[in-house]
Each structure stands twice: as structure tokens, then as C-alpha cells.
Nucleic acid binder design. Sequence first.
DNA 1: GTGCAAGTTGAACGAGTGTTCAATAGGAAA
DNA 2: TTTCCTATTGAACACTCGTTCAACTTGCAC
Lengths: 197, 197
Amino acid sequence: MDTGTVNTREQGEQVDRQSRILEAALELLSRHGISGVSMRAVAREAGVALGLVNYYYEDKSSLIRAALHSVDKHDLALVAQDPGLSPEEQLRNALRRVAGPELLTTRYLSLRLHLWALARADEDFALINAAAFDRYLDGLAALIGNARPELSAKECRERAADIVVVQNGMWLTALLGVDKESIRRSIARTEEIAFAA
Amino acid sequence: MDTGTVNTREQGEQVDRQSRILEAALELLSRHGISGVSMRAVAREAGVALGLVNYYYEDKSSLIRAALHSVDKHDLALVAQDPGLSPEEQLRNALRRVAGPELLTTRYLSLRLHLWALARADEDFALINAAAFDRYLDGLAALIGNARPELSAKECRERAADIVVVQNGMWLTALLGVDKESIRRSIARTEEIAFAA
DNA sequence: GTGCAAGTTGAACGAGTGTTCAATAGGAAA
DNA sequence: TTTCCTATTGAACACTCGTTCAACTTGCAC
């Protein structure tokens, strides 16, 4: 592949089929859970023949693993540092982002939930997930450390852990349809934890 | 069935087969997720012939529904009132129970997670789950109301919602192996919310 | 043009799925 | 004993699953 040449059939949304297959898998996983993700269903959703799914992803578990990595990468970006802002603003933005409109969609939350459930059932996925969780915790602790330089690394990590508990609760509870006001108050609670004196 | 007569084969743990089938389904669901729960696997785990599973549960989804109800009943008991204690103690006990050794086991948490994921994939399960969630919220709000009679029903409900966010977060994060100290601090946080002036 | 490699297709295979059902066992009632 | 209903079994059915593979198309290098 990537010989540097341009695909001739690149009209409209017909980008490369591999991404469309991955996207289809994410969509099906979010909507119907793992039991809705069959190779045939993925092929159908992506508008592609069955064989092509196994061409780009040798296994079904390779496909799911790719989906997991894709979501993990997305999660990690939430706590990435942004040099254009003050440390306090970076932290506050990161904390508010988790209740932003891009995150608090059914599609994303449902996807996250199904991936967590998957990680409980498969040890390989569990390891990937745990590593991503650790990196997220590190990222959040770093943001806290920048905004509150007087805190020790251990204290930052503790606050990050406490915040993640509330954030995970928000994600999960949002799926059950808890009212928006409770989400707002929970966001405020994460800020209290982060900025506490 | 229940003619009032005693089963002759009631030696040891050989109680009625229907409960053993349900128990097997719960065990498999907790360990391997929904894709590990096949009628055959349930029969094997329960030490029973395949046909018997469909004899007691006409459908696979009836079986899963029974599992859901069983867990929901268990959850609701967490916020049941206990006339032998003062309202404050009842509330405090309920809040601490969610981090108790019976609850914070991998088996229970994993089961809960898989049921949540299942509810996202199947609308019937979602309705059952949402109803159970509401009853749990009501129970918790009632405990708060008893302990803090000066609060309005609306305020109780709000506090209950905020507490549930943290509790759900604890459950979920406990599965990812967050340290026990963070769980302890989160419990304290739920108590702060409940008893705040 | 010919050659070649990557991309793409769908049929085929064996394994596993949920469900049905005729057959059997067991114990209480007659 | 015979009768009858419940409990229990496992074979059988039609179906879906993940995976493999031979065939075919496409586009670039020569």
C-alpha cells in the first residue's frame, strides 16, 4: 500500500476501506454490544465484502483490539497538555471536557461501556485497558501538578484517582439517564477535588 | 411444582434445579460476559441437561431477564430501611455497604457491568434496568430524608443522584483496580454529600 | 502491451448457536 | 398395579459464526 500515489476512486467519503471497517465495528459495538459485532455485520455496515474484513484484520480479536486502541487514544487526548493556556485553564478545561457535548453522547459512552465489559471477559483486552487507564491517570495527575506546583507527585496522583472515580460515575450514570443538573454538580465536585487547598 | 411436599432428592446442595440454572447463568455472565452465556454452557455449569434450561426458561432472554431481576433485587436491598437503627445509622450503613466485602467482589461488580452493557444493547433490559435504578434512587432518597428531616423531597432526591454518581464510579473504577485508599476517600465523599448542612 | 502485487469478492467449511421434541424416569394418586 | 403429570434427557433442526481460499479486478512498473 502507501506508495505515495493517490487513490483513483477517492470520490467523496470513499476513503480507505480499512478505516471504514474499523468505523463500522465501532458503530456496531456501540449500538449492539459485542454480540452485535460479527464479521458479516461489520462488512455489511462498511459496505464491503466479508473477506475484506479478514484481509485487513487477520482476526476478529485484532479488529476489536484496534477498536479498543482507537478509543483509548481518544481518551488520552482529553488530558493532553495545551501549551497555549495557563496550567489552571488546562486543568479546568480537561475536567469540563468530560461533560462536553462530544463526550456525553450515547454513542461514545455506550462504546466505552461495552469495551469495559469486554475487558472483563478477555484478559488481553483487560491489560490494554488497564495500561490506557494508567496513562489517563498520569496525564490528569500531570495537569494537576502543573496547576498546583506545591503538591507532591503522590498527592497529585491521589487527587487524580479521586477525580476519575467521579468521572467514571458520571459516564456510567449518564447512560442511565440521570438528570443534567446532577452531572453539572459532579463536574463541580471534580473541580473542588482538583483545586482544593 | 410446589405441591407443598418435600423433594426426596434433597441431599446436600442439590436444591431445586431451577435456582442452580439461574446461579450458573449469573456465574458465567460475571466471568465471561454475555458471549460466554450459551444455553449449553449454562447447562454444563449447572450440571444439568441442555433441555432442562429451556424447560424452566422458555427463552434465552427469559433466563437473562431472570438474572437481571435477581441482581436488581439484591441492589435494592442495599437501601432498605432497618427499623432497629437510628435514621443516621441506617443512612451511614447503606453508604458504607457499597464498599463492603460482599459488594466489592470482582464477581458482583463484573456481573453488574455486564448487565449494564446488556441493557445498552437490548431495549427490554434497558427498561428493567432503568426502573430498578429509579427504585434504588428512591430508596436512597428516603434514607436521606429520614436522617435529615429538614430537607425537602427534591433536595433528598438531588443528593441521592449525586451520591449514586460517586457510587457508580467506585464500582466501575474498582474493577480497573484503583487503590483501596481512593475507594475509602470516595465513601467519605458520599457521606459528606449525604450529611452536608 | 505483459507482469506483478495489492485489493476485493463470495462460496465453502467446520464449529457452535437457540430451540424443539419424542422418549424416559419418578413419584403421588387411584 | 395402573394412571397421570411433572421433571429430565439428549438427539436433531435450521441457522449463524469466524476463518480460509481460489478466483477476479485494479492500477502501476516495466
